[in-house]
Amino acid sequence: MYIQQVLLSIFSSMNGQRSSKAALHLLRGKRSGQTIQDVGTFHLHKYFGILPKLSKNTFTDELNQLIDAGWVHINDGQQAIITARGKTLLQQSKELLFNGWYYRGNEHIFFKRLSLVVQTLSHFHAGDYRFMPLQKDEEIQHFVKQFLMGKPYKETNFKNQFRDELEESIQQLPIDDKHKLTIVLRITGYRLSGWTWQQLAEEFDATELDMQLILIESLHIWLDDLYAKRNQYPFLHQLAAGIRLENVLNDSTKKTADLYYNGYTPDQIAQVRSLKISTIEDHFVEMAMNDIDFPLNQFISEEDANKARDVMRQTGSKKLKVIRESIPHLSYFQIRLVMAIKGG
């Protein structure tokens, strides 16, 4: 159900202008120019990379279920089109609050840190100082050690303080109790095992994938909240350190951006970096998507940009070709920038 809502929402945004496979790339967080551009064009930031390991089979199965249910149909161009019934369903559903673009799987690191802190405090409280940590990752262990060091972590007072902060923070999140319970059931304590995805799915009469999505969405909402309220939940805020991507440009794009802001033209950058101009253009599209101050008008006049926007509005199309046919003097690159620009 959850995954189906995610897919419906993506197909609805893409509005039949991309093949259904584009949704798979999006969910997996594929770092290709096309997928990144789709994120900007259709405002799909929230779903980017939320399921890096989604298999093609699972995706196809879910898609087929949508088709069988009459919420989506596939046209000749392999594009998934949302039906009227699908639209109604989507409007009736609660809005999904993923924030994939800024977390990109890092939410799991936050959760692992939290889980190890709780497991540690739980065992220490029971006087068990030799427990097996659930988290085997040395980086997580190291982080948690640093976090606990300098705090009176063996004291009951500290454990209570931490638990109260955790409870208050979860309490005020705008998510269902079922989702809150899912969070805490994935955590282990002294003589208290976590629940497997299968067990959670059975308990809540959902699929394992849906339960995983519930956790991911809850963590995104939680992290957004923690970042917004820095001082209110000091311990949790510490555990969330470095989880949100502050600089969302990929490394290569960042190099291009640095050169550009140092006065190099796109052609010069391509030369200096020995990259194809098309690659450099991908970088600019990514920059346009992320940088509020991106100087669009150095690439296209305001007048032409407005023309392009008008065509998009009138035809309802975000296909490059359609726009190019109406305004032939614009390059594909210019049109892509207009579509990508933040807030555009």
């Binding site: 409280h125 931490f162 304590g189 208290l192």
Partner: peptide
């Protein structure tokens, strides 16, 4: 007898 706790109960059990 896996009775579903409330999330607050579970949290309390994890860190009594």
């Amino acid at each position: 007898s896996r009775n579903r706790p409330s999330w607050q109960e579970r949290l309390q059990a994890l860190m009594p």
